[in-house]
Amino acid sequence: MQAFKFNTTKSIIFRPSASAELGEIAGALLGESVLLITDPGLRKLGLCDKGIASLEASGCNVTIFDEVEADPSRTTLEAAVEAGKSANVTGVIGFGGGSSMDVAKLAALLIGSGEDLDEAWGVEMAKGPRLPLVLVPTTAGTGSEVTSVSIITVGDEEKRGVSSPVILPDIGVLDAELTLGLPAPITAATGVDAMVHAIEAYASANANNNPVSRMLAREALRHLGANIRTVVAEPGDVDARGAMLLGSMLAGQAFANSPVAAVHALAYPIGGTFHIPHGLSNALVLPHVLRFNAPDAYALYAEIAADAFPELASIEGSQVRCSAFIDALADLSSELGMPTRLRDVDIPENALPKMASDAMLQARLLVNNPRAVSEADALQIYKAAW
């Protein structure tokens, strides 16, 4: 049995309306002054209001930073840190999608330690300590509430990551009711994003790919595959929403320890340059990366095919089942009403060479791919997706 390590969030609370009880759940942990980080859309919808009221009722002074954008910039992170320092906060809450949670992770680190962000980029470079940290996801996609990764956009296009157990939160609060209002396109894209996390974790070439991550990845795919069509077609189904949120969390635990690979590496230039949402960026390249990987990874993909799509269980032969799995994933995006080609999101063909070059900057991800990817390979994958 190979050696491995497995890190995850200390406490996970999964129940409807849990986000309205943040004071009772985390007030004592967070202390007397809390920085709540979210985005303007969620703030306007009032999704944070009950949680804020609960915190205030428990004696917490709440400072709200609601300026997080999609693919958050370093400037936004620095503004959140300054807001927290000015209020002398003792704890941080990230309330929202992956962007808000990513900013919250690094705000807790930078406020708590005074660490230089430029020395924290990369794998296990962050030293800490951080402030107490609670994350409340409002989408079933990123799994950020159980991952040790935060991604920030630096400059105009480049995405950089901090990956360290130091930024794992103390508590993840999963409240399916928060996801009920998500529009169908976001529901679909974040759901496919979670499936990508599970697939890449299962097939990761990382030395820490381990039995626990593989088990969680398969369970995640069972939840996600069985419910993604329902939540898009019937957005008020709280049980299906809960199953998606749980699947997203399980996939997050899997890839937090058995890291993702080329799908994410090739998705980042799509988001960084053309500002396409992360989940959709992943979906656009997913089948094409898997087809590229298939010569080396077909047996792995065949093993998980029926977890996501039970009807594939009857297909004999690993290569044939792998091919059917990839086709089913491509068909799923189309069925869910998502764009399926790069041209569908207005990416011009002449942008593909630079995207391929930019993807090579994601070496920390590409090393995990089951098949080596060159810049020429990346360009061919993009051409297939275009």
Rank of each mutant, 00 (worst) to 15 (best):
N7M: 06
S11H: 13
I12S: 11
P16T: 07
E21Y: 01
S33R: 13
P40R: 13
P40N: 14
K44D: 10
D49F: 03
I64G: 14
E69Y: 09
S73H: 03
S86K: 09
G96L: 05
S99I: 00
S100M: 05
K105S: 03
A107R: 06
E124H: 12
T142W: 01
S148T: 04
V149A: 15
T153Q: 10
E157L: 14
G161E: 12
V166K: 01
L168V: 05
P169Q: 15
D175G: 06
M195S: 03
V196F: 02
A207V: 14
N208M: 14
N210Q: 14
V212C: 12
N227P: 01
V231K: 04
A240S: 15
A254H: 00
P259H: 12
Y268Q: 10
I270T: 06
G271R: 02
G279E: 02
L284V: 04
L286N: 02
H288E: 15
N293Y: 02
A297D: 13
A299D: 10
E303N: 08
I304P: 03
A313Q: 12
F325Q: 03
S334F: 09
M338H: 07
P348I: 10
P353C: 15
A363M: 06
R364E: 10
R371L: 10
A372V: 05
E375D: 14
